[in-house]
Amino acid sequence: MEHVYFFGYGSLVNRTTHEHTPAHRARLHGWRRAWRAVPERALCYLTAVRDPDAHIDGLIAPVPGDSWAELDRREGAYDRHDATQSLTHDSDAHAVVVYAIDPGRHSDPGPDNPILLSYLDVVVAGYLAEYGPGGPAQFFDSTLGWQAPILDDRAAPRYARARPLTDEIRTLTDAGLAALGSRIIAAA
Rank of each mutant, 00 (worst) to 15 (best):
residue 2 E to L: 06
residue 4 V to A: 09
residue 4 V to S: 08
residue 5 Y to L: 02
residue 6 F to Q: 02
residue 6 F to K: 08
residue 9 Y to A: 06
residue 11 S to H: 06
residue 14 N to H: 03
residue 21 T to F: 06
residue 21 T to Y: 04
residue 25 R to I: 01
residue 25 R to G: 12
residue 29 H to Q: 09
residue 29 H to K: 11
residue 37 A to M: 08
residue 41 R to L: 15
residue 44 C to V: 15
residue 46 L to I: 10
residue 48 A to S: 09
residue 50 R to L: 06
residue 53 D to Q: 12
residue 56 I to M: 02
residue 58 G to A: 10
residue 58 G to P: 11
residue 66 D to N: 06
residue 67 S to F: 01
residue 72 D to T: 04
residue 73 R to V: 15
residue 73 R to I: 15
residue 75 E to R: 13
residue 75 E to A: 11
residue 76 G to Q: 15
residue 76 G to S: 15
residue 77 A to S: 14
residue 77 A to F: 15
residue 79 D to A: 14
residue 82 D to V: 03
residue 82 D to N: 09
residue 83 A to R: 04
residue 89 H to G: 04
residue 94 H to M: 01
residue 99 Y to M: 05
residue 99 Y to P: 09
residue 100 A to D: 10
residue 100 A to T: 11
residue 102 D to A: 15
residue 103 P to H: 09
residue 103 P to D: 14
residue 106 H to K: 04
residue 110 G to D: 10
residue 112 D to S: 14
residue 114 P to M: 03
residue 116 L to C: 11
residue 117 L to G: 02
residue 118 S to T: 12
residue 119 Y to I: 07
residue 119 Y to G: 05
residue 119 Y to K: 06
residue 120 L to S: 02
residue 120 L to K: 03
residue 123 V to L: 05
residue 136 P to D: 05
residue 142 S to K: 09
residue 152 D to L: 03
residue 153 D to A: 06
residue 156 A to S: 13
residue 159 Y to P: 03
residue 160 A to F: 14
residue 162 A to P: 03
residue 164 P to E: 06
residue 167 D to S: 14
residue 177 L to G: 02
residue 184 I to M: 10
residue 188 A to T: 12
